[in-house]
Simulated assay, not measured.
Amino acid sequence: MDIESRLAELGITLPDAPAPAANYVPAVQSGNMLFVSGQISADENGLIKGVVGRDLDVESAAAAARRCGLALIAQARAATGSLDKIVRVVKLTGFVNSTPDFTDQPEVINGCSDLMVEVFGDAGRHARAAVSAAALPRGVAVEVEAIFEIAS
């Protein structure tokens, strides 16, 4: 099944690929690897801000991570022209703006990881890091970057 059809079947509408906010590009292709810059938590109402463990609970933060995943997929589509060029999700690195005593970063980043498997099936299973951050850009709750393998 093609990925666009899979998104429609799941009722998922991708956001527009966000423009870079500084001096970097949204994605870089090197060989058959696509490196997508970190996408920060945002939805149709704007940035999803806050410190997890203080302002947001795990469920809300996981939803924010899912939004990062939607932006990552949108960036991959913008970079490649078609999501059907995605061979697999290779790695996600997730950062959670959390209190010093918060230790459920993996459960937060599952919001993004689960989306990748939902959309890409077994090709969405990936290596991953989920780490705490004392602060993230613009005060957002979550940021996730990705590496995709693409067809040559």
Rank of each mutant, 00 (worst) to 15 (best):
D101N: 05
D16H: 10
K49Y: 04
V119D: 01
R54Q: 11
E118H: 13
A61C: 05
V36G: 08
F95I: 01
L115H: 07
A146C: 15
N97I: 12
A79M: 07
V36H: 10
L7K: 05
P15E: 05
I40C: 15
V119W: 03
I147T: 10
E145K: 15
P26S: 04
E149I: 08
R128Y: 14
V58Y: 05
V52E: 00
T99V: 14
L10N: 04
G53S: 07
E143F: 07
A123C: 11
F148E: 04
G69W: 00
V96H: 00
S5F: 13
N23Y: 10
V90G: 00
A63N: 11
L72S: 05
L7T: 11
G31S: 08
V87Q: 08
L92S: 07
S82M: 01
I147Y: 14
V108W: 00
V28W: 07
N45P: 02
S98T: 03
L136N: 02
F148S: 07
A42M: 15
F35L: 15
S41D: 10
R66N: 05
A151Q: 12
F95C: 02
R128V: 06
P106S: 02
A74H: 12
L14E: 09
F148C: 11
G124Y: 11
I12M: 13
E143W: 03
A141L: 10
R125E: 12
C112V: 00
L47M: 05
I12Q: 03
G111W: 03
S82E: 03
I40H: 13
P15N: 11
